[in-house]
């Protein structure tokens, strides 16, 4: 009898904590997204889908949604595409110092993003930063990136990429070197170029992990980018660097529009859920599974 209860007993602490601080809050946020509220007032006014309609029609939030997709593209480029190429190079092209590269690449991953944000703010300072000084020697100047639309998103993504690169690299590396050595050796004997080996053999055979990293880059990357946005730009210039995550924070804790924030959060969640469903429907079935 007691033996039967044990698994539930062991699961209880984790499940209770996750229910209280993750699952129930998620349901409550869904509920709040149908109300107009300011977090303090004793009454909440039911407004149906107004918060959602407002988000999808309002120019500011339209810009924020556009920015979110801009962030996604830049983050995928830095943290998936480039990382994949590095994993392949370390795995198959270079022969020595593999261990050293793995350890060295990971170093920035353990550093606080607040520290990273501050360091990059100084290093990339358009007037007195070291990059500007070196640039001046060669006759070019650094644009005022934190006030420039578009560029600000690229630089903030770069800060996040600096931190995330090492982790993504390790996971992709493990999967890339898991591809059967014989196949690669055979391809090499046939004089197939490294580029073709990468695209035709390694990429499809490690694609399950690749897709996992792709989703992680989007889900985590958008949340990670919150820190440099909050520390450096506060969403500016004129919402030019805000994304769905930062905007939800801004609505809730700066302008106290709880319903707007909740609706933004639910839209973010919806995007993430769609991504995961895509993985299950498409990837899990069709893609070559490394360990099967």
């Amino acid at each position: 009898m007691l033996e039967k209860l044990k698994p539930y007993l062991f699961l209880a602490p984790a499940i209770v904590l996750l229910l209280v601080f993750t699952v129930i809050p998620m349901v409550y946020t869904l509920y709040l997204s149908f109300f107009d509220w300011n977090m303090i007032s004793p009454t909440k006014e039911f407004v149906g889908l107004d918060n959602y309609i407002n988000i999808l029609t309002n120019d500011t939030t339209k810009k924020v949604i556009f920015n979110t997709f801009f962030y996604i593209v830049v983050l995928i480029l830095f943290n998936c595409v480039i990382t994949y190429i590095f994993a392949f190079i370390i795995g198959y092209v270079v022969k020595r110092f593999k261990g050293f590269y793995k350890v060295a690449f990971f170093i920035p991953s353990v550093i606080s993003l607040v520290v990273g944000s501050i360091l990059f703010t100084w290093i990339l300072n358009p007037i007195s930063g070291p990059v500007a000084i070196i640039g001046e020697m060669f006759g070019f100047s650094i644009p005022n990136w934190s006030k420039t639309d578009g560029l600000v998103i690229i630089v903030l993504s770069l800060i996040v990429s600096w931190k995330v690169f090492g982790y993504n690299f390790i996971v992709l590396y493990a999967s890339v070197v898991g591809v059967s050595k014989e196949i690669i050796e055979a391809a090499r004997l046939d004089n197939i170029s490294n580029l073709r080996i990468f695209i035709d053999i390694v990429l499809p055979m490690s694609s399950a992990t690749g897709f996992y990293i792709l989703i992680l880059t989007i889900v985590q990357g958008l949340q990670y980018v919150f820190t440099p946005i909050k520390v450096i730009t506060q969403g500016g210039p004129n919402y030019g660097s805000s994304n769905l995550i930062y905007q939800a924070y801004h609505e809730a804790f700066v302008v106290y529009k709880t319903g707007q924030s909740a609706a933004l959060a639910m839209i973010t969640l919806l995007i993430f859920v769609i991504l995961l469903l895509l993985e299950f429907l498409f990837v899990e079935r069709r893609i070559y599974y490394e360990n099967s």
Partner: peptide, 20 residues
Amino acid sequence: ALICTIFIPFTVTMIPNYLI
């Protein structure tokens, strides 16, 4: 279900948790 909680963004839980 436990694993799925990894993918819930913090903005979804922050207001209720702040209230708690």
